[in-house]
Design a protein around this nucleic acid. Structure first.
Length: 448
RNA sequence: CGGGGCGUAGCGCAGCCUGGUAGCGCAUCUGGUUUGGGACCAGAGGGUCGCAAGUUCGAAUCUUGCCGCCCCGACCA
């Protein structure tokens, strides 16, 4: 992609409303633009990150055996009356009236709708288990939206729903999502720790929040250091097999958010040198809730004895748009973003320090073609801006590699390669730089 | 939802108290000099001062209402 064609409205100054790094950087780097309180337009650069996160989530859901579908954003109020949540949800729900005066709403979640869908198509215990998901925009009319996409009102979320005949099978579905989440966040370069979460009126131990550690996190968290080093399930994990040992391993150590925290237990079960008290950002939440919706909404299947029983259900969310902010919180410095390869908007930036100079242009064009041919996503800065501005802009948008080419380098036959993560630079021969970078990119994108 | 604050050019702000028809820095455009970490000189364009009503000879400025946004707290992916 040529920068002269792309739309990248970067800002030197920080808009006054941005309080935290990710919000500030997303605005400055031209990733998004605020259109209302907690409502954002995704500009091309931010959109590319959003799509990559979405795709990783999708791949890991598919791997775990979940099946993708798509439910609408607008729902009927009557559906929510069946579960009793139309009144219970309160002002967080955005209520709309259509031309016929019918009460509608912009969905804050889809439990009711998915329950309605499966009750229409599931008759027998033989139709179970099933695991369905979609990735769709949601709206929650938060009292106080803030921190950009970290706490917006409109947000993109992956939500999966499990359907099982009994408790034991339900636990197996829960474990699939548990393991899938470990992999999902790991692939984005994040260390997400499953923490015991509020289970509400249902009770039991089947709810976990997946939390990434970041100084600006919304809640205080406490965990055992050993959880951070624990290896996540491999690519070849059999999701139809027994995942209980994986879940047991990750739940064996102490990890809790402040509302679930028990200081006495923390001190008793975790040695002092392993205690971590930090702040965290919730990026996923998994929850098994049994018959909470299936019972009132009469989503039933017949058992082997011919008697109808309500389906056992769970729901599993990942905050896709929120992750864009979460990733920046985890990976940035004073100059800008520092994207992990798996989610970066482009793999590399190609900086032409003297656009308009025949020799420099020619060298850049050649490398640009080579990179594109090798499948490297490259943002080619072919603008006539000054070097300082180009460097600052590249650092701001935070692509993992910057290939810098100027008249000086062309003369000596070298390009300068800068790694954004640690700022390290090296000179590489002009005719070797494209293959070198494509190898680096390829290696960084390999995952187990 | 309680408490506070702010809406003036794309961004950051001054002007408002003490009414006289709008200004600064950055950005943008033109010309020139520059050219490896956000250049310099000269010139130019861009704002119905959030909206509406009122007071006044005259309103960015005073009054009232509305709208929007932000911050602190309680809530949330």
């Amino acid at each position: 992609m040529r920068l002269t064609k792309f739309y990248l409205p970067v800002m030197k100054e920080t808009p006054s409303e941005a309080q935290i790094a990710s919000h500030r950087l997303m605005l400055r780097a031209g990733m998004m633009r605020q259109e209302g309180a907690g409502i954002y337009a995704w500009l091309p650069l931010g959109f590319r990150v959003l799509k990559k996160i979405e795709q990783i989530v999708r791949e890991e859901q598919d791997r775990a055996g979940a099946v993708e579908m798509l439910m609408p954003t607008i729902q009927q109020a009557d559906l929510w009356r069946e579960s009793g949540r139309y009144d219970a949800y309160g002002k967080e729900m955005l209520r709309i009236e259509d031309r016929g005066g019918r009460e509608m709403l912009f969905g804050p979640t889809n439990e009711e709708m998915i329950t309605e869908i499966v009750r229409a198509g599931m008759r027998s215990y033989k139709d179970l288990p099933k695991l369905l998901y979609h990735i769709q925009w949601k709206f929650r009319d938060e009292v106080r939206p803030r921190f950009g996409v970290m706490c917006g009102r409109e947000f993109l979320m992956k939500d999966a729903y499990s359907f099982d005949f009994d408790d034991e099978s339900g636990r197996r579905s829960y474990n699939k999502m548990f393991a899938a989440y470990l992999r999902t966040f790991e692939r984005m370069g994040l260390k997400a720790i499953p923490m015991r979460a509020e289970t509400g009126p249902i009770g039991g131990d089947l709810s976990h929040e997946f939390i990434i550690l970041a100084d600006t996190g919304e809640s205080a968290v406490f965990c055992d250091k050993r959880l951070i080093e624990m290896p996540v399930p491999q690519k070849d994990t059999d999701f139809d097999g027994d995942l209980q040992s994986i879940v047991d391993q990750f739940t064996a150590h102490y990890a809790a958010t402040d509302e679930m925290h028990d200081e006495a237990e923390f001190e008793k079960t975790v040695e002092e040198e392993n205690r971590i008290a930090a702040r965290g950002i919730e990026v996923g939440h998994i929850f098994f809730f049994g018959t909470k919706y299936s019972k009132p909404m009469k989503a039933m299947v017949a058992g082997s004895d011919g008697k109808d029983v309500p389906i056992q259900m769970g729901s599993y969310g990942v905050g896709v748009s929120r992750l864009v902010g979460g990733l920046i919180e985890a990976f940035h410095d004073d100059d800008g973003c520092k994207w992990p390869m798996a989610v970066t908007p482009f793999h590399a930036g190609l900086v032409n320090l003297k656009a308009g100079d025949a020799e420099t242009d020619e060298a850049c064009e050649k490398i640009y073609r080579e990179l594109e041919a090798a499948g490297v996503e490259v943002l080619y800065d072919d603008t006539p801006a000054r070097p300082g501005e180009k460097f600052a802009r590249m650092d701001l948008i935070g692509l993992p590699y910057q290939i810098v080419i100027g008249p000086r380098g062309v003369k000596s036959g070298n390009a300068e390669l800068k790694r954004r993560s640690d700022g390290e630079r090296e000179d590489i021969a002009l005719d070797a730089v494209a293959s070198h970078v494509s190898a680096l990119v390829r290696d960084a994108l390999v995952y187990d």
